[in-house]
Design a protein around this nucleic acid. Structure first.
Length: 433
RNA sequence: UCCCCGGUAGCUCAAUGGUAGAGCAUUCGGCUGUUAACCGAAGGGUUGCUAGUUCGAAUCUAGCCCGGGGAGCCA
């Protein structure tokens, strides 16, 4: 008797198979049972007749939602069944029954956000959430495939760091060994700058932490970031890499996760349009576009969520805004030699109002300028000595960016909130489960 | 940190100053093709907490707690 996964059940039409999973739901109709099973790969409806199989009927009748079961039956195509295939159950083995006194808390109906987040460890069992997590996995696989294919070497950055990567944001402080203090990384960038000088083209991919008190659908306190860095690379090289990476990720999901995107009711035509080249606009031009659209922004202002939405809604694919004023960008950004008041940085804004998914640019390569900036920012110079070494010993032009995984996946999935695209979201005021 | 919104049964919600209710879930009964099945019945409440106004508070007032959305900041 073959043990099969529900996603592959169509290959076994007319054959008897075993499915190991859970009871997703069950409808009862007198002398007929319609259990719906799930096994993590999909759902399938079963049929059990009292007349034909009284023993199994008795075992399954009244069984509680999410009880674990191993069932055997014959696969039949049937228009009436959700999913097109049905399992005519011949035998069932109950693995664990959910007690009636403590029924499964998540029902097949609308629930509130607060409740679902408290039940996140169970919520991920629902088809929609499971689909999102499968898409996340595909996005990660495709992103690494692309970076590896472009000759970038994975060199992961540490999670414990001695100081801030960017002065302004708030850090999570943790106690380290023997009364030392450490901080959870807010970016791996400084470290990939070092590995780029060692290996040429590198990237890191891992969790990052921001203790900002942001309460929006675009923020998490713990999120994953992919950060490439390349020696001798310039701003334009990074914009080419960024559009190549993002389009490869989107196209891979569109190709390999069709069923999941259907579960999410995602508009596939919007994803299919995500191909290079992506539009590039300079900051100056972005300000003009915003002013034409009635936004009260002047040159020198940074863009908020509203402004980003206006800009990204002009295009059917992500837009890259480059050369922002240095004053509103991070301390390590290289100024444009043609217009020193501008930084050689860029942001990629996702369509449909999902906001900034990439930020990056060219790093400052001059020792003197970098020291000056560190002092201006009031950053602890001692902690940055190793970083300054990169400018003492064979400094070269180099560039990179950071791609926010969850914002990217939220956009691909079309979810309302970023919290749905990470298995266990960490947000301000929420760390359970 | 600031602004806005919310907290009533396990869940989703109703009740706007006068006896706290419905659907789902659970239990019992019925139903041979159900699609969040349906029909009948039962059990289930410190209305977030504290104080106040009132003959009377889920409802009005104040403070606090918890959560959501947004600003700032950022991926």
């Amino acid at each position: 008797m073959p043990v099969v996964s529900i996603e592959k059940v169509g290959e076994y039409e007319g054959k008897e198979v075993t499915i190991r999973g859970w009871l997703y739901n069950q409808r009862e109709s007198g002398k007929l049972l319609f259990p719906i099973f799930r096994d993590g790969t999909g759902i399938i409806q079963g049929v059990i007749s009292l007349k034909e199989n009284p023993e199994t009927f008795a075992k399954m009748q009244g069984l509680t939602q999410e009880s674990s079961v191993i069932v055997t039956g014959t696969v039949r195509a049937d228009q009436r069944a959700p999913g097109g295939y049905e399992l005519h159950v011949t035998g069932a083995e109950l693995v664990q029954k959910v007690a009636e006194s403590e029924p499964y808390p998540i029902q097949l109906k609308e629930h509130g956000v607060d409740f679902l987040l408290d039940q996140r460890h169970l919520w991920i069992r629902t088809p929609r959430q499971a689909s999102i997590l499968r898409i996340r996995a595909e996005a990660i696989r495709a992103a690494r495939e692309y970076m590896d294919g472009e000759g970038y070497i994975l060199t992961d950055s540490p999670v414990f760091t001695p100081a801030a990567c960017e002065g302004t944001t708030t850090l999570f402080e943790v106690s380290y060994i023997d009364d030392q203090k450490a901080y959870l990384t807010q970016s791996g960038q400084l470290y990939v700058e070092a590995t780029a000088a060692a290996l040429g083209k590198v990237y890191c991919f891992g969790p990052t932490f921001r203790a900002e008190k942001s309460k929006t659908r675009r923020h998490l306190t713990e999120f994953w970031m992919l950060e490439p860095e390349a020696a001798y690379a310039h701003l334009d090289d990074m914009m080419v890499l960024a559009e190549g990476l993002v389009s490869h990720v989107v196209q891979s999901v569109a190709k390999n996760r069709v069923r999941e995107l259907e579960t999410l009711k995602r508009d596939m035509t919007k994803l299919e349009a995500i191909k290079p080249p992506f539009p590039r606009i300079q900051y100056d031009e972005a300000v003009e576009i915003l002013q034409k659209n009635g936004k009260d922004v002047k040159w020198g202002d940074d863009f908020g969520g509203d402004e980003e939405t206006v800009l990204s809604s002009q295009y059917d694919r992500p837009v890259m805004v480059h050369r922002y004023p240095s004053a509103i960008k991070a301390f390590y950004m290289e100024p444009d030699p043609k217009r020193p008041e501008l930084a050689l940085g860029f942001d990629m804004l996702a369509p449909e109002g999902y906001g900034e998914i990439i930020g990056g640019g060219e790093r400052m390569s001059s020792y003197e300028n970098l020291v000056k900036r560190i002092r201006e920012q009031g950053l602890p110079e001692e902690a940055f000595q190793w970083y300054l070494d990169l400018r003492r010993y064979g400094s070269v032009p180099h560039a990179g960016f950071g791609l926010g995984l969850e914002r990217t996946v939220a956009w691909i999935c079309g979810t309302e909130h970023i919290r749905e695209v990470i298995p266990f979201p960490r947000m301000i005021y929420r760390m359970y489960p």
